[in-house]
Design a protein around this nucleic acid. Sequence first.
DNA 1: GCACTCATGACAGTTCATGACATCACTCGT
DNA 2: ACGAGTGATGTCATGAACTGTCATGAGTGC
Lengths: 194, 194
Amino acid sequence: MVTVPRWPEDSRSRLVDAAMSLFGEHGYSGTTVDEIAARAGVTARTFFRHFADKEEVLFADDDTLLPGLLASIAAAPGPIAADALMLHALTTLAAVMQPQRPALVARQRIIDTDVSLTGRELAKQARWQQGVTATLIERGFDPDEAEILSAIGFAIFVRALHAWLADDDGPDLADRIRDALPRARTVLDAVSAR
Amino acid sequence: MVTVPRWPEDSRSRLVDAAMSLFGEHGYSGTTVDEIAARAGVTARTFFRHFADKEEVLFADDDTLLPGLLASIAAAPGPIAADALMLHALTTLAAVMQPQRPALVARQRIIDTDVSLTGRELAKQARWQQGVTATLIERGFDPDEAEILSAIGFAIFVRALHAWLADDDGPDLADRIRDALPRARTVLDAVSAR
DNA sequence: GCACTCATGACAGTTCATGACATCACTCGT
DNA sequence: ACGAGTGATGTCATGAACTGTCATGAGTGC
C-alpha cells in the first residue's frame, strides 16, 4: 500500500506544524532544522527553500495579515478622524486574529524565550508600522502626524495583544483595544495639560 | 625586535575597531568573524570570549548608557510632571550621545543594511523601555500610565535620533527632542479632542 | 509524446558558535 | 625569590545553520 507520497502534499504547512510542536517540546534553540525536516518527512534543504531561515517558520504567516490591515485603512469611508480610523483598522485586524488565539499563544510563548525571536517580531512590527504610516499619508494626513499616530496606535495594539495572549479568560482582543484607546487618551490629556 | 605583543593591549576595543572598519568595507554579512579577529591580531575564539555573537560587537557599548538613563529618571528632583521627567531623562541621554555622533552614524548605516541587526536594535530598545517603565513605577507613577508614557517617550526619542543621524547638518539631538515633544503634544491634543 | 517547469533530494562546502584543554604572563602570599 | 593561582589567549574538535549545484521525477502544455 505504500502510501505513495504522490505529490508535495504541502510540505510547507507540514514543516510549520512540525516546527511548532518540536519548539513546544524542546524549545526553539533545542530544536534543529534537521529534526523539523525529518518530522515533516522532507530534507533540511527543502526547509530552507520554504523559509529563508529557521526563525522565519514562526513569522511567515504574519505577512498575510499586513495587506488586509493596510486595505482596511485605505478603504475606510470618507473623511474620518485619525483616531477613529486607527480604531477601525486595529479592531478589524483584531477580528482576524481572534480565532487564531490558540496558535498565537503557543507562538508567543516560543518567541518570548529567545531574544533574537523577540527582535525579529519587533522588526516585523516596525515594518507594519511603516506601512500604516505610509497609508495614512496617502489618505492625506500630515507625514509627521501620521508617524506619531501610528506609533501610538501600535503601542496600544501591542499592549492589548500581549495582555490578550496572556489572559486565558478575558475580553476579546478587539474589546481590549476599544477599552485601551480612551484610557490612553486620559493619560495623554494629563501629559498635555502639564 | 620581536615586538613581543607583550600583553592583551585591550583586545576588546581593537576587535570593535576592526569590526567597524571591516563592516564598512565589505558590509556586515560580507565580513567573517575570522577576518575581524585577524585584523585585531587575535583568534576567532577570543572574539567570542568578548562578545556573545557576531552581532553583539555592534551593541555591546549600548548597555553602558542604560544605567545612566535610569539614574537620571530616579534622581530627578522631587515631585515632577511626567512629561518634564521624560524630557529631562531623554535630553540627558542625548547629551551623552551627542559627541559620539560620527561613530553612531557609521553604526546605524550598518544596522540599516541587515534585518536581523534592526531586530536586535529594536529588542534592545524594548529592554530600555521596560527599564524606564519600571523606574517610573518606582517613582510612584501608575503602572499602565508609566507604560504608555515610556512608549510615547521612546517613539519620540527614536524618531529624533534617526533624524539626527540622517541629517549631517542640523540641530543637536537634545534640541530635536525638545522640539518634538510639543509637536507630539499638538497631535495628541487633536486626537483627544476628536 | 516531448519539452518544460517546479518541488525536491543528494551532497559538498562555508560560516557561526561553543566546549575542552593547554599555555603563558603576571600577581600575590609566604 | 618562588610556587600556586588567575586571567586572557591559543589550539583543536564539533555541532548546527545556512548555501551552491546538480540530478530526478512527477505534473503541465503544446
